[in-house]
Simulated scan of single mutants.
Amino acid sequence: MLVLSGTVGVGKTSVGRAISYLLSQRQVPHALIDLDWFETFWTQRKDLEQNEETLHRNISAVWQNYRDAGAERLVFCRIVEANAVLDRLTDAVPGARPIVVWLAAPTDQVLARIRSREAEDPSWFMETSVQVAERVVPEDIADHVIHVGERTPTQIAEEALRLTGWGELR
Rank of each mutant, 00 (worst) to 15 (best):
M1I: 00
G6W: 00
T7Q: 00
V8C: 12
G11N: 03
S14P: 02
G16P: 00
R17L: 10
R17C: 08
I19F: 03
S20H: 14
S24H: 12
R26Y: 06
A31P: 02
L35M: 09
L35F: 06
L35T: 04
D36H: 03
T40Y: 09
T40F: 09
T43F: 12
Q44A: 09
Q44S: 11
D47V: 11
N51A: 15
E52Y: 07
L55P: 01
H56G: 04
R57C: 05
I59T: 08
S60R: 10
A61L: 10
W63S: 06
Y66D: 07
D68V: 14
R73I: 08
V75T: 07
R78I: 03
I79L: 04
V80W: 01
A84N: 01
A84R: 00
L86C: 03
L86D: 01
L86W: 01
T90P: 06
T90R: 12
A92C: 08
A92E: 04
G95A: 15
R97G: 09
D108E: 13
L111T: 12
A112C: 11
R113G: 11
R117I: 08
R117Y: 03
R117G: 09
E118H: 13
E120F: 12
W124D: 09
F125Y: 13
E127H: 12
E134P: 03
V136E: 01
V136K: 04
P138E: 10
I141A: 01
H144S: 04
V145G: 06
I146P: 08
I146W: 11
H147V: 10
V148A: 02
G149E: 07
A157G: 10
E158A: 08
W166M: 15
E168T: 15
